[in-house]
Simulated assay, not measured.
Amino acid sequence: MLKIQEIRELIKLIDQSSIDEFKYEQNGEKITMRKQVKGAEGAGQTVVREVPQAAAPQPAPAAPQQAEAPAPQQEAKPEAKSESGEKDSSDREGLHAITSPMVGTFYEAPSPDSPTYVNQGDKVKPDSVVCIVEAMKLMNEIEAEVKGEVVEVLVENGQLVEYGQELFLVKPE
C-alpha cells in the first residue's frame, strides 16, 4: 500500500493537474481521490481509502460524490477516445496496447533535445523502451512488452496520463 508521503505527493500532482478523479487499487485495498469545487472557496481534495474489511461501508458515503464529479469526466473520456475510436473499433483486433503502469507525465524522449524513443511505424522488441512516465519526480522507462510494429501513438508529449491509459498500439509479429 502507498505510504503517507506518497499519498501526499499524489494529492499535489492531482491538484496541479486537470484530473478530477484518481483511483488506485492494490491487493484489495483502494484509494480514491476526487477534486470537489466548493463555490467561491476553490477546489478541495476528498481522499477515500478502502481496505478489504471496510470495503462495504465506505462506498455508500462515496456514491453521492461519484454521481456529481465523474459525470463530466466520463463524458470527456469517450470524446478523447472517439478521435481515434472510429479507427480503433475496426483496426484494434490483434493489436497490443501498451498502457501506463501509473499516473504521471508522458515523455516521448529522454530529454527535450533527444530524438523520440519510438514513432509510428517503428519496430520494437519486448525490452525496447518506448517512453518515460514521470511520477513523483521519478523517471520510469516503459518497455514495449511485445515484438512488433508501433501502429499508433495515442498520447502527446508532456500529457498527463492515468493508470491503465493506453499509450501505444503495437501490431505483434
Results as ranks from 00 to 15, higher is better:
22 F>Q: 02
109 A>H: 00
88 D>N: 11
155 V>N: 05
142 I>M: 03
134 E>I: 04
84 S>Q: 13
64 P>H: 04
44 G>S: 15
145 E>L: 04
61 P>H: 07
50 E>S: 13
27 N>M: 08
151 V>R: 09
126 P>T: 07
106 F>Q: 01
92 R>V: 01
75 E>Q: 11
109 A>Y: 04
122 D>F: 03
162 E>D: 12
98 I>A: 00
73 Q>H: 12
27 N>Y: 01
13 L>S: 14
107 Y>Q: 03
147 K>S: 13
52 P>S: 06
171 K>E: 06
155 V>I: 07
156 E>K: 15
90 S>P: 14
1 M>V: 09
29 E>R: 10
127 D>T: 09
86 E>S: 12
14 I>W: 03
59 P>I: 10
121 G>P: 10
112 P>K: 03
69 A>F: 13
2 L>V: 14
64 P>L: 05
123 K>M: 11
102 M>D: 07
138 L>Y: 05
71 A>F: 12
57 P>K: 07
67 A>M: 12
152 E>W: 05
163 Y>C: 15
63 A>Y: 12
33 M>V: 07
126 P>I: 08
26 Q>G: 09
106 F>A: 00
50 E>K: 14
36 Q>K: 13
164 G>C: 00
26 Q>D: 12
98 I>K: 04
1 M>L: 00
30 K>V: 12
65 Q>D: 07
101 P>K: 04
6 E>D: 06
45 Q>S: 08
2 L>C: 08
127 D>P: 01
139 M>K: 02
141 E>I: 00
131 C>W: 02
117 Y>H: 02
139 M>F: 08
162 E>F: 09
73 Q>M: 13
17 S>A: 00
77 K>I: 10
10 L>V: 08
78 P>Q: 14
39 G>R: 14
6 E>V: 14
121 G>W: 02
92 R>Y: 04
25 E>G: 12
146 V>Y: 02
162 E>W: 02
22 F>V: 11
9 E>F: 03
83 E>R: 13
31 I>W: 06
46 T>K: 13
172 P>V: 03
133 V>H: 07
1 M>A: 06
132 I>C: 05
138 L>Q: 05
33 M>G: 01
58 Q>H: 13
158 G>I: 03
85 G>D: 10
8 R>P: 07
158 G>M: 04
157 N>D: 00
142 I>N: 00
13 L>T: 11
144 A>T: 03
14 I>A: 00
99 T>R: 10
101 P>N: 07
93 E>G: 12
91 D>F: 14
72 P>N: 07
73 Q>L: 14
74 Q>C: 09
119 N>I: 08
36 Q>F: 15
128 S>R: 11
47 V>L: 10
109 A>K: 03
64 P>Y: 04
155 V>M: 01
70 P>F: 14
113 D>R: 03
45 Q>V: 06
8 R>Y: 09
89 S>T: 12
111 S>P: 05
160 L>V: 15
35 K>I: 08
12 K>G: 02
89 S>P: 15
1 M>Y: 03
109 A>D: 02
24 Y>C: 07
164 G>S: 08
6 E>C: 10
99 T>Q: 11
168 F>K: 01
28 G>Y: 00
138 L>R: 06
61 P>D: 01
6 E>K: 09
